[in-house]
């Protein structure tokens, strides 16, 4: 059950998106987030949707697999939707019942916020689906490495991320096992009051924590045995070289940014929330 999450998982395929330099992909994603927040109305999502669809198709990641990355977010989506639906009071009132008031503005905002969230998740998961975690961390390390002069721990940060990514599935598996073991001992995890449920988590969290410390200890020894001594004097398996594709990607991102800025200037009605 816990293993079914796609978020942050790599999907192996040969595509032009997969081949992009991770540094470019990281920068593109940063730009993409800015672009998503530039969209101030539902209309503005149209060019964005075109871009995301094209990117997904190019990446050769199956749509169904992409959509799965949204699954863990479904409750957040529902929550955001309802929150905006009932708390926004603008436009005409359609329905009024007790303290609940449904307005056209509310409906619009609810859709707007939910779609924005979907775009954010789709775009960022495209990055993790098409980039191996190791390339990703390599990319981060290299982007931040100029900051080493001000003692910014770029290598250490990247190493921490790698190890975290490496151990997420292992720890999920372990959590699953511990949970089953405690259920077998009569633990009731999914019933009772909030207080009871929190208390019921203790027999799961403590063994998980103890287990993580044990793993950390053993991993540290294994790393030391393999001559790990920090980033100094370390070479890299991967040499990063920018290619034509990276140039094109950068151009596309800048064009998209330009479109999103210029479009509402030319057609002001596009930027207006009803």
């Amino acid at each position: 059950m816990l293993k079914d999450i796609t978020l942050g998982q790599y999907y192996p395929a040969e595509s032009c998106i997969h081949r992009l330099d991770p540094r470019i992909k990281l920068l593109a994603m940063t730009l993409y987030i800015v672009i998503v927040f530039l969209a101030q109305s539902l209309y503005m999502f149209i060019p964005l949707a075109a871009f995301v669809t094209a990117a997904i198709l190019l990446s050769k990641v199956p749509i169904s697999y992409m959509l799965k990355s949204l699954k863990p977010l479904k409750w957040i989506l529902v929550f955001m939707f309802l929150l905006n639906l009932f708390l926004t009071k603008s436009g005409t009132e359609i329905l009024s019942f007790w303290i609940i008031k449904l307005t056209t503005g509310g409906i619009y905002k609810a859709f707007f916020i939910s779609i924005r969230l979907v775009f954010l998740v789709l775009g960022t998961s495209l990055l993790t689906l098409t980039t191996t975690p190791i390339l990703l961390t390599d990319g981060i390390e290299r982007i931040f490495s100029p900051l080493k002069v001000i003692k910014f721990p770029a290598h250490e940060l990247a190493m921490i991320m790698t190890i975290a990514l490496r151990f997420v599935p292992t720890l999920l598996e372990e959590a699953d096992k511990i949970m089953k073991a405690q259920i077998s001992r009569g633990a009731q995890i999914d019933t009772g009051s909030v207080f009871k449920r929190v208390k019921a988590m203790i027999p799961i969290l403590i063994p998980l924590l103890v287990g993580s410390f044990r793993r950390a200890d053993e991993l540290a020894m294994a790393m030391e045995s393999r001559c790990y001594h920090g980033g100094e004097g370390r070479t890299k398996m991967r040499v990063m070289k920018l290619t034509l594709g990276d140039g094109i990607c950068t151009l596309i991102m800048i064009s998209l940014l330009a479109i999103m800025i210029i479009l509402p200037q030319i057609f002001p009605m596009l930027a207006i929330m009803p």
Binding site: R185, A187, P203, P207, V210
Partner: peptide
Amino acid sequence: LVGMVFQYPEHQLFAETVYKDIEFGVANL
């Protein structure tokens, strides 16, 4: 009716004393 002992069952221990850990299942009954 069924007691279940998983692989490496020592990895499920959590209480501060041996007594309390064994008590967990009994109390749940």
